[in-house]
């Protein structure tokens, strides 16, 4: 009876450990695709500029949004590197300066990105407007 229990523990351990290994290896080899977006620094480090659709994400740089005739231009920054983005279309409500953003589109070169879709990224801070105002005045 005790021997059987030991065997079952061994069996379970083998299965679980190999499953963890398999999952780990899959995720590791797909890391490029598991990440939802590249940061501007990742873009700078790209060896080749691919023509397929990618996503670039980071913060919208302060005072960088300019809107002229349906065209939105802004800069995505990760506070180390920056990338210029141009986009035409409607942006989500939460899209604003100093907030997270993910742009989906095509790289023209390492500094210029042509977006076809804009997603706003929300951060982990939740508070009422009055508190935000009070924090801002500090």
């Amino acid at each position: 009876m005790v021997k059987k229990v030991k065997l079952r523990i061994l069996f379970l351990l083998t299965i679980v450990l190999s499953a963890i290994l398999i999952v780990f290896l899959i995720l590791k080899s797909l890391e490029k695709d598991v990440v939802f977006f590249l940061s501007p620094t990742d873009v700078k480090d790209l060896k080749i500029i691919e023509t397929k659709k990618i996503r670039v994400g980071g913060m919208v740089k302060d005072k960088s949004i300019s809107i002229n005739s349906e065209k939105v231009n802004f800069i995505i920054t990760d506070f180390k590197n920056e990338i210029n983005v141009s986009y035409s279309g409607s942006v989500p409500n939460l899209f604003s300066e100093n907030k997270g953003v993910v742009a989906e589109g095509f790289l023209e070169d390492r500094n210029y990105f042509k977006a076809v879709k804009i997603l706003a990224k929300h951060d982990e801070n939740y508070m009422p407007p009055e508190v935000k105002k009070a924090l801002g005045e500090k």
Binding site: V34, V35, F36, L38, G57, E124, Y126
Partner: peptide, 22 residues
């Protein structure tokens, strides 16, 4: 990984980033 989903707000080791009224 970089995800579209935001990070955790309720943390055990760090300060929670949700205001108490929420």
């Amino acid at each position: 990984w970089n995800t579209l989903h935001q990070g955790p707000s309720v943390k055990i080791l760090n300060d929670t980033t949700i205001h108490s009224s929420m």
